[in-house]
Design a protein around this nucleic acid. Structure first.
Lengths: 229, 229
DNA sequence: CGTGCGTTTGAGTGAATTCAACGGCTGTGG
DNA sequence: CCACAGCCGTTGAATTCACTCAAACGCACG
């Protein structure tokens, strides 16, 4: 299965990639590679797939996750339009990536972007920056998982989403409660209870389960004081 | 203080760095920059210090950590000889780094290694690999913090240390119980109790508090099944 | 021999989990 | 148009794992 998937993707990409251009992108990957579409819940790559590409979200949203043998799931990150994912040091992916909703994803072959990074120092700097930014996000998230209570985790999550989603105060979340729980290291019930409590406290309004309005951002920031973005 | 530290370090490095050579290192940084020494518990850089250098552990051991306003501490990583740390996308450090014991650290100016990475594709590849490996470690650690019980965290920690420290079965830990707790997102009491229980179960022997002998590695691996290295 | 630090152990508590039931929305089919 | 199933989310009650608080232990050092 591992290789089947890899080859399938490879074929698709080769077919599409002929019309690629290596433009003078201000952002890495923008004018490289091919654009692919994925349906809601489709697998973009699987754990242990060959890691031959970098991915950039054009539209939609993506989660990366891992499963334990006994069924526990952990979501490593959510990716929104503009985000780059799929970095691996080794030959294989260590997480799987799935579309949270219908997605357009730009796909660039590893050898291609590495080659370009060698030749183009501006490009190299951008790529480096993306990678290290990932690292920072991961470090922030570790802190959250290691040393924060449920309320603080939810507050951090909402503020992060508010910064990344288009309208800063009305969040249209692309993910389910279960996804949020698996991202924050909580259960779905705890996520639900905490959100309800925040609504009672007039910190949030939740007109629909996936639409969350921040009514008292200051309160959220206070819960989240300890760490920057 | 922020700038004071930056300038102090800068001065030290300039003084020492005249004898640097840009050798044809098989490992990045090996023949670059200057070697500095730090005493046990000395601060190598502080949170919000200017991030002007990369660091490579020559001997000793290092922790990076963060504090909340209310005193919670989280340790992001431990670095042992050969490890590189100090990557930042922005201008400032987001964690502080402290010597767990007396250390020798090789220090390389950011502008210097970036310049070399542009010129030397082999070097670039190595540097890239180090960075992405960091990212992988961070992802593994997130999983641990998000979805594992105390026993599994300790097992993962011990196996990781066994792989990185010289003698694979007799671990001479450079860090205190409190450090381990803050690294694993537990309390010192939980760490202590879990280790004691593992000793009762004949999985470990603990002849001294910082010397841990792995007696039943298989049992540890089982607790840790869900994730690779 | 006392002091101080790091570690271990014990008892009681609490925050988040588990288990279980209910509520509400959406789409389908009668 | 309503009935129903299926999914997702919420709520409640009981449990549990790790935490907090507290005390004791062991070792190094002056």
């Amino acid at each position: 299965m591992l290789h089947w998937r890899g080859e399938e993707l490879s074929t698709k990409v080769e077919a599409l990639a002929d019309d690629l251009g290596i433009g003078s992108a201000s952002e890495p990957l923008d004018c490289m590679g091919a654009c692919m579409t994925f349906e809601r819940n489709a697998e973009i790559f699987a754990e242990n797939d060959l890691a031959e590409y970098l991915y950039k979200v054009v539209s939609g949203a993506v989660r990366t996750c891992r499963l334990t043998s006994d069924g526990r799931r952990h979501i490593g990150a959510f990716y929104l339009p503009g985000d780059v994912f799929g970095f691996e040091a080794g030959a294989f992916h260590r997480v799987c990536a799935e579309a949270l909703r219908d997605c357009k994803i730009r796909v660039v072959r590893k050898s291609r972007y590495l080659a370009r990074a060698e030749a183009d120092s501006e490009f190299f700097a951008r790529l480096w920056e993306h990678t290290v930014r990932h690292l920072e996000r991961a470090e922030n998230h570790m802190f959250l998982l290691g040393r924060k209570c449920a309320q603080e985790r939810i507050a951090a999550f909402l503020l992060d989403m508010a910064k990344r989603l288009p309208d800063g105060n009305v969040l249209e979340l692309p993910m389910s409660r279960q996804d949020i729980a698996d991202y924050l290291g909580l259960t779905i019930e705890t996520v639900s209870r905490t959100l309800t409590q925040m609504e009672r406290d007039r910190i949030l309004a939740i007109p629909a389960s996936r639409r969350i309005v921040l009514r008292n951002r200051h309160a959220l920031v206070q819960m989240n004081d300890c760490m920057a973005a």
